[in-house]
């Protein structure tokens, strides 16, 4: 009987009148109650009965028209393009939660990896920064203290790569100077950077501030030549020079940090084959004036290198 009612109620969605009910239905009901089965009407039957009683099927046409008019007005006003708020989203919850959680997990993972990478990179950067001055100190002391060829004649000896003990040291000093030169181009005229020890040394080596440009051009040219020639030893030294460049900028605190990066780049890039890369950097750093001045000073007589320097 319960099924009966739940089927009949929904179909009509109206109150079930005694007259309207099928005879069999009524008889069954009577039998149910008379036969002492008061629970013949189950919960579903009760719900169907309540629904049938409470819901009036007739829809007020005027109210419907008002609603449709409001719909039309909203459509024309463009209100239907409004954004969905959380309370407007009635899609099945399980699906939404599932996709959401997957998305969340992925983004959390990615974010974690990214941040972790940044953190690791930061550790490396901090380490090199603290390393810099120490190495610089060592080198700064070492290069003047080293007797003979390294400080004495970086220019004169540069064509003699044959001597084994001089090999590692001399080009390193040359690189040092080279890095200083590159940095010098950037810092010139700015602040007190030029007062720093490294600059003073550079100026002394060049024989006066006015000659720094020419000196540097020569140095860079020479560095390029060495690189072309250079084997693994030269590569290693180039790396050293790069680090030295990094460190020297640490000494020249004011405004030199940008240069430090540049010089470091030069050193790193020259480590292996990509001498061309280094050339490019030199060109951009020491370029204009330096290259022009070095026109007369290309004492090695190697036409290829100046050519490579000038883009």
């Amino acid at each position: 009987m319960g099924e009966r009612q739940s089927d009949g109620g929904p179909a009509g969605r109206r109150r079930v009148h005694p007259e309207g009910a099928p005879p069999g239905h009524r008889t069954a009901g009577r039998d149910g109650s008379v036969g002492g089965r008061p629970h013949a009407v189950d919960a579903a039957g009760l719900e169907a009965l309540l629904a049938a009683s409470l819901i009036r099927d007739s829809v007020d046409a005027a109210a419907e028209q008002r609603a449709v008019a409001a719909f039309r007005a909203a459509r024309e006003a463009g209100a239907h393009r409004a954004r969905t708020r959380r309370r407007d989203d009635w899609r099945p919850r399980r699906r939404r939660l599932g996709s959401h959680s997957v998305k969340t997990v992925l983004s959390v993972l990615l974010g974690g990896l990214t941040l972790g990478g940044v953190a690791v990179a930061g550790i490396g950067a901090a380490g090199s920064a603290t390393d810099g001055p120490a190495r610089d100190d060592r080198r700064a002391h070492a290069s003047p203290d080293t007797p003979g060829p390294s400080t004495g004649g970086p220019l004169g000896e540069s064509t003699g790569p044959g001597s084994a003990p001089a090999g590692p040291d001399r080009p390193a000093a040359a690189r040092d100077t080279e890095a200083h030169c590159r940095a010098y181009e950037k810092v010139e005229g700015r602040g007190k950077a030029l007062d720093a020890t490294a600059w003073k040394r550079l100026t002394e080596a060049a024989g006066g501030e006015a000659k720094v440009d020419a000196y540097c051009a020569e140095q860079l040219e020479q560095a390029t030549a060495e690189e072309r020639r250079g084997g693994p030893a030269a590569g290693k030294d180039a790396g050293e020079a790069g680090r030295a460049g990094n460190g020297s900028s640490g000494t020249a605190r004011d405004g030199a940090s940008g240069n430090a990066g540049n010089a470091g780049n030069a050193g790193n890039a020259s480590g292996g084959g990509p001498a061309g890369n280094d050339n490019g950097n030199g060109g951009s750093g020491a370029g204009g004036s330096g290259a022009a001045n070095s026109g007369s000073g290309s004492r090695q007589g190697k036409p290829a290198q100046p050519g490579a320097d000038r883009p």
């Binding site: 409001a70 909203a74 209100a79 239907h80 989203d89 099945p92």
Partner: peptide, 14 residues
């Protein structure tokens, strides 16, 4: 229903 008609575009679901 006026509100429903206005906000219908926001609704998502079956």
């Amino acid at each position: 229903w006026l509100e429903i008609a206005r906000d219908l575009g926001r609704f998502k679901g079956d």
